[in-house]
Each structure stands twice: as C-alpha cells, then as structure tokens.
C-alpha cells in the first residue's frame, strides 16, 4: 500500500521535503510512530493529519493511494 505525504511548515522542514511517498504504513498511528522514530524532532511538534483533504481524529487506517497531509500550527503574524 502506498500513500502520498504532503507536509507543511515546520514538519516539511524536518522532513527536508514537502512531499514524499511511503508504503507499508497502515494507519495514522503507525505514520506518527514512523516519523517520530526517524525524525525525533517531530516529537515536539504538534500537527493535524488530513486524509484526502479531510482532517481526521484518532487512529485512522489508510487506503492505497491516499493523500496524507501533515499540518502543524503556525504562530507568525
């Protein structure tokens, strides 16, 4: 199963990319765990997760080809 990641703001900075493709991750919980293991800085960032343009709550399973957006809050003004 493949998903497309769209990262914003500080999350994109930590991942060094606004876009990437990942496979073998089945759910949002797995995705968070995968990122925190491979990019420990993400632990101190909070971010909302959207699947196909809809922000999801709790743990949600992915479908093949899902577009998964990671949206951290911005504070600047």
């Amino acid at each position: 199963m493949e998903i497309k990641i769209l990262a914003f703001g500080a999350v994109a900075d930590v991942l060094s990319s606004g876009q990437m493709e990942l496979d073998n991750l089945i759910s949002t919980d797995e995705l968070r765990a995968y990122f925190e293991k491979n990019y420990p800085t993400l632990k101190s960032l909070s971010y909302a997760i959207a699947i196909n343009k809809k922000i999801v709550l709790g743990n949600v399973n992915f479908n093949n080809g899902d577009e998964v957006a990671l949206l951290p809050p911005f504070s600047g003004g």
């Binding site: 500080a10 101190s44 960032l45 909070s46 909302a48 504070s75 600047g76 003004g77």
Partner: peptide, 17 residues
Amino acid sequence: LFPQPPDENAILSCNEA
C-alpha cells in the same frame, strides 16, 4: 484544529525563522 499547542520553544517565530 490544534487541541494541543506545540512546544513554543521548539517552534520558530517570524522573528527567528
């Protein structure tokens, strides 16, 4: 949207970023 604020110390503001 954001129930939990991020650790402000870990986030850059416009003044820094």
